[in-house]
Simulated scan of single mutants.
Amino acid sequence: MYNSPLQVGGPAAARPDVTRRRLLHAMMLVTVALALPALPPNAFAAPLSVDQKPTLLRVARDIYPHEGFLDDAPYQAVIDAILLEAENSPVVADLLRKGLADLEQRSQRIYKTSYIAIPRPEEREGVLRSIELTDFFQKIKGGLLMGLYNNKALWPKFGYDGSSWETGGFIDKDFDKIDWF
Rank of each mutant, 00 (worst) to 15 (best):
residue 13 A to C: 09
residue 14 A to C: 09
residue 14 A to F: 12
residue 15 R to I: 09
residue 16 P to T: 07
residue 16 P to F: 06
residue 16 P to N: 06
residue 17 D to P: 09
residue 17 D to V: 15
residue 18 V to N: 09
residue 20 R to A: 13
residue 21 R to V: 13
residue 21 R to F: 11
residue 24 L to T: 12
residue 25 H to G: 10
residue 28 M to I: 15
residue 29 L to S: 10
residue 29 L to P: 03
residue 30 V to I: 14
residue 31 T to K: 12
residue 33 A to H: 08
residue 33 A to F: 13
residue 33 A to M: 10
residue 34 L to R: 10
residue 35 A to N: 09
residue 35 A to E: 09
residue 36 L to K: 04
residue 39 L to M: 10
residue 39 L to C: 11
residue 40 P to M: 02
residue 40 P to Y: 00
residue 42 N to W: 08
residue 42 N to K: 10
residue 43 A to W: 14
residue 43 A to I: 08
residue 43 A to P: 07
residue 44 F to K: 10
residue 45 A to M: 01
residue 49 S to V: 10
residue 50 V to Y: 14
residue 51 D to N: 13
residue 51 D to I: 08
residue 51 D to R: 13
residue 53 K to R: 15
residue 54 P to Y: 00
residue 54 P to K: 01
residue 55 T to K: 08
residue 56 L to V: 01
residue 57 L to A: 03
residue 59 V to F: 03
residue 60 A to I: 05
residue 60 A to R: 02
residue 61 R to V: 05
residue 62 D to Y: 05
residue 62 D to I: 07
residue 63 I to G: 00
residue 63 I to E: 04
residue 65 P to S: 10
residue 66 H to M: 09
residue 66 H to L: 09
residue 66 H to I: 04
residue 66 H to W: 05
residue 67 E to N: 12
residue 67 E to A: 14
residue 68 G to M: 05
residue 68 G to V: 05
residue 68 G to E: 11
residue 69 F to P: 02
residue 70 L to Y: 00
residue 70 L to G: 04
residue 71 D to E: 08
residue 71 D to T: 07
residue 72 D to L: 01
residue 73 A to E: 13
residue 74 P to Y: 06
residue 75 Y to N: 00
residue 76 Q to A: 11
residue 78 V to Q: 06
residue 79 I to H: 03
residue 81 A to E: 13
residue 81 A to C: 06
residue 81 A to T: 15
residue 83 L to W: 05
residue 83 L to F: 05
residue 85 E to I: 03
residue 88 N to E: 12
residue 88 N to K: 13
residue 89 S to H: 01
residue 91 V to C: 04
residue 92 V to E: 06
residue 92 V to Y: 00
residue 92 V to N: 01
residue 95 L to Y: 02
residue 95 L to K: 02
residue 96 L to W: 02
residue 96 L to E: 04
residue 96 L to C: 01
residue 97 R to L: 08
residue 98 K to F: 09
residue 98 K to A: 14
residue 99 G to M: 01
